[in-house]
Write a protein that binds this DNA or RNA. Structure first.
Lengths: 217, 217, 217, 217
DNA sequence: AATGAATGAGAATTCATTCAT
DNA sequence: TATGAATGAATTCTCATTCAT
């Protein structure tokens, strides 16, 4: 018997859930095991969450929430695009190192297995990022820091894609290995190199001669 | 009783498996259901594959194999980098439309839940792509089509990341929704726009003034 | 749902298991059937016992435990060897009548099919009996009740063999029939006769002339 | 495709079956595995034997048949009881060493698991032995080699019990261990000692003073 | 309100038996 | 006639969920 669950206890429960879901995925994670690890009875868990799925979503919300908080902080400066980009990349590296579970949790819902609530979540989760990045890029276009013939939403999308994959590349077993296959066995210890090269990629991915570009169409 | 399984039947079984695994993931997919859908008995399935996991891997191998074949075809030309990039992007769009399951299957293993064989698979699956892209970029550097102060392996990595996310964005429920959030509700019908903008992004992601770049370090 | 399993319920479960295992053997006995017969769900069974094998061993331990308790009681007297032997024989007859399942359970592990844990169990189960009987016989040798040129351990072994087979002869379907083949259709109702003859056998199995024995070596 | 099964092939099949049944028991032995090991198709097996059970019985018959043949040979001499006993004991030791499978096969049916046909088999299998031993003992009584106040059938029974347990003690995993527990770790290599002591046991198991015996009743 | 034991439907896997070739 | 691939019922074991205490 325990008194009403404290705020901290709730957090502990969610963190335990995140750990299990990140490691095993939704279906292989075990509610009874989570409850035991969190030091509560399954009963309470079911008092607060209707079923496994609801609990999973709560865990997901928490991990995404923390992620957004981190992003927001980085974003609130008023730097030039490239400086912002660098800050974000470093934040992503740092976050990936410290919050592996959160990222794997996020990765988990993107796979087909959780398709049921995936679409609804996407809107909720991605909106802030999409808006933020698109805003940055639009601003940079206005400021003349960036060419004007582009679609800021798509550029924001590509930018976020690069960051998303970078996160996964530090966290998921598969993507970590893939990272090494592409960039060498030591890449996971060469954060600075990754920052530098990704910034170069963003600066001018493939620097084609203007003429060539004109020709192309 | 039925006659010996034909080659086509074997393929049908794998395709059924790919469909189920892509939709439900490894743990939620049901072997008995797969067998029923494929019109065979569980028995045969276990005659050909030691267990669920082995069958899953066989399905995965098949989907990856087809994917590689598509890539190889695109790659065998001797175009300039940008032309190649365009061909690949279009191939990816096309492939994503016709082989949703294969891509979702691939997405499934990248999530933490299948971590057991993920590391081994990464090496097997990504090697060809990694080498191919890295080769392209190195060649382009030699040819003077691209700036020379970059790391071709990392550039290949970023390039493949963009393509990977693009694939997912056409196939997974979650990523499709995210795609729309970022790029507008109609984006899934605007393939040409996606090609154009991604090529622009690759050409010069963020065209910073040279001076700014010089300043940065 | 039911209340927590009582001590008696636990015993009932074990007894049900013993019944099934005794009748069908380890592999043919069905866990679901046992659970149903015991009036519990499979779930509880698996809560208390890791798997079928573990449950089987628990059943075995129980039946052996009860058997040992019976033996211990008989053995605590301080009679002459023959008197003890008689008491033990009668106890065996009595026990076989009331605990058929326990004996068949024991018989089950001695067959090759359960070989996996058989060796470990043998040490655990037989030690007490072996020591007890060997002690008896050694004591009788000291007391001059028995010839001194024998090996007490082997004599204890032969003695226990006779008792073991006697038990089986009252319990197992096969051995019961064999008993009748050897000793007549009514032998199962002639306990007194069995006691008398077995005691005679022990007294002097084949009374060879001394001279003959001397000759033999 | 093969021509009609030869006599040798039939024997090979049975021997393979005996090996598997001896090792795994009736229910855990696998017909498909047996067929493969014997180098035939399951089809033929089912051509010759109605079902698994029928095949099991055929295997059993064969192993018992061989056993009887061995016994018969030993028995056909016209020695004194004790000499015969010694010959039989040695034959049993020898047979146990060379035909472990046959004995374990026999042991298998005596456990409750095969109860269905056990009773019928007992009559068939044990009759010869029972008669033979009983005959011996009756003869020895007539000849005055043995006391006259005994029941020859029961004595034959006890004698066979000792031999049966001796066989098991060389063959079954469990009984082998039990043998060591009773008689020491090296007992399996001390055949001569076993012969000697068992003969002593038969000669005069517990040599009680006549007076004591008289008193007892 | 909290507990956690009990529930039992559900899923993976095995293997005796059939029967088209 | 022999083959051995296919069948699918049966069995073990898991775990989300319930509810008596």
């Amino acid at each position: 018997m325990q008194k009403k669950l404290t705020e901290e206890k709730m957090v502990e429960i969610l963190e335990t859930g995140i750990g299990e879901f990140a490691e095993k995925g939704l279906s292989r994670a075990n509610i009874n095991v989570i409850a035991k690890k969190a030091g509560i009875s399954v009963g309470v868990l079911y008092k607060y969450y209707a079923d496994k799925e609801a609990f999973f979503l709560a865990c997901l919300k928490r991990s995404v929430g923390v992620l957004e908080a981190v992003l927001k902080e980085v974003v609130e400066s008023d730097d030039k695009l490239l400086v912002r980009a660098e800050k974000i990349i470093r934040a992503v590296q740092n976050y990936a190192r410290t919050h592996k579970n959160y990222i794997n949790m996020y990765n988990e819902i993107t796979s087909g297995s959780s398709s049921k609530f995936a679409p609804l979540l996407a809107a909720e989760i991605e909106n802030l990022t999409a808006r933020t990045y698109t805003g940055f890029i639009a601003k940079a276009m206005e400021d003349g820091d960036i060419r004007r013939d582009i679609n800021p939403r798509l550029f924001a999308f590509f930018f976020d894609n690069l960051l998303t994959m970078l996160q996964f590349s530090y966290c998921s077993d598969y993507y970590r290995e893939r990272f090494k296959v592409f960039c060498g066995a030591d890449i996971l210890d060469e954060d600075e190199k990754v920052v530098t090269e990704l910034l170069k990629f963003l600066e001018s991915a493939f620097t084609f001669s203007r003429s060539e570009i004109v020709h192309r169409r």
